[in-house]
Design a binder for these strands. Structure first.
Lengths: 227, 227
DNA sequence: CGCCCTATTGAGACTTGTCAAGTCGGGTGG
DNA sequence: CCACCCGACTTGACAAGTCTCAATAGGGCG
């Protein structure tokens, strides 16, 4: 899939998509809910993967740190996103809550068993895994090919896309500049200057450090997809 | 999983791992072989995904191009690697042969059916998918956090790791400098200078543009993993 | 032997990182 | 209620890294 096509409106596949009422009920029986305070950790890199999670409310952040201390943010996760679906025996990254959040937890073992019995469920999981890989490939493309202000547009576009309906143009930046920098492979100063540049050029407006509005969506798109 | 852990010796999971003789035979019946000349395309981005491939001989390259012409190489694929396993309805990238190659082709539909009936096969596919995601996450980390010469070490380490047993220190660079540059998010000039720097520092030796030897594996490792 | 494609090397421009100073805003304590 | 404080963000000046453009070298093949 090309970087462009992320713009397709994905109807946000869930594991429930197309399941029978009976199957959905069985799945429901597995689910428990967990509430997270801002800053709280959901799980840690290298710990055994025992559950799959779906975000119900709030925003989470997936990150990876090297022994020498630098870190790479792998994703910002929204309601409807899944965590832990494609993993191996151990989690690939650390996950923490950027805001107060509620996640649904599904124990991995019965979830896998149920996949054996429901082709549709298995298919849904496969789709979600594909989406995660596609997202990661987009990120590789962005980090490999784009300049600072283009990477910022890449993020703005991702956030506006997934943000609840109405005013997708006004964006709440829940995360810190450091989080953004670590996501885009930049420094906070460069991120800050990139925002400044976009504002000077009239492409976005910055109300506060954590609220921006996209004035010219086409240009943002164009920069986000620029190679 | 941390960037470090890629160094674990993966016993190269295959879809056959742990299958019964009967299952293996059924799988064999699905497989056909396909020979590729150097430079030939195996499949194209955006075309419907109909098969899964395993490389038997040779080296392939996975790449993605944007409409504006720049491209990102997503991976160099060795014998034993799978292509198309985690995909969606359409292939995510274009795949071509860097050398003469032989691939095994498995039609997707019967392959998925068989997964429904063999939990072990499904588990193998899941593992392989996890490896692919892990590889991609490593790449994100490298592009986001590393300098040019560190990225080159990142590549050298990957190649030495997967290269047939004995002299993993001598590395054949089958691909062009442009391919390397597009994989690492650099220009060919910067790649060339990075090689030069590593050579001047006595970390590698360069016999020809396409043959290098790692003189100090520890340093290469260290640079490859540097954050 | 000569040609062509690829890779290397050099000089200068541009982008990003680093270090340091200054601003903004929310929260606390006087 | 206001002053202060602290963290987060912005801005500036400079250094370092990478890109661009251009010239040169090297290797394979006719």
């Amino acid at each position: 899939m090309s970087p462009q096509s992320t713009r397709e409106i994905e109807p946000l596949i869930t594991i429930y998509s197309g399941l029978s009422a009976a199957e959905a009920a069985r799945l429901d029986a597995l689910v428990s809910r967990r509430r997270l305070d801002p800053g709280a950790y959901l799980l840690h890199q290298h710990t055994p993967a025992r559950s799959v999670f779906m975000i119900q409310e709030g925003m989470l952040m997936l990150e990876r740190s090297s022994s020498t201390g630098r870190r790479q943010v792998m994703a910002f996760s929204h309601p409807g996103n899944y965590i832990g679906i494609t993993h191996r025996a151990h989690y690939e990254f650390t996950v923490s809550a950027l805001t107060a959040a509620v996640v649904q937890e599904i124990p991995l073992k019965p979830f896998l068993t149920m996949q054996d019995e429901s082709p549709r469920l298995k298919e849904n999981v496969r789709s979600i895994g594909g989406n995660i890989l596609a997202h990661t490939l987009d990120q590789v493309f962005a980090l490999g090919q784009k300049k600072a202000h283009e990477r910022v547009c890449f993020l703005l576009r991702q956030l506006s896309e997934r943000q609840a309906g109405a005013s997708a143009r006004r964006i709440e930046l829940v995360m810190t500049r450091q989080d953004i920098a670590d996501y885009l492979g930049l420094t906070i100063e460069t991120v800050s200057r990139a925002f400044g540049k976009l504002k000077r050029e009239g492409i976005i407006d910055i109300f506060s450090a954590h609220t921006v509005e996209i004035l010219n969506m086409d240009t943002v798109e164009e920069l986000a997809l620029a190679d």
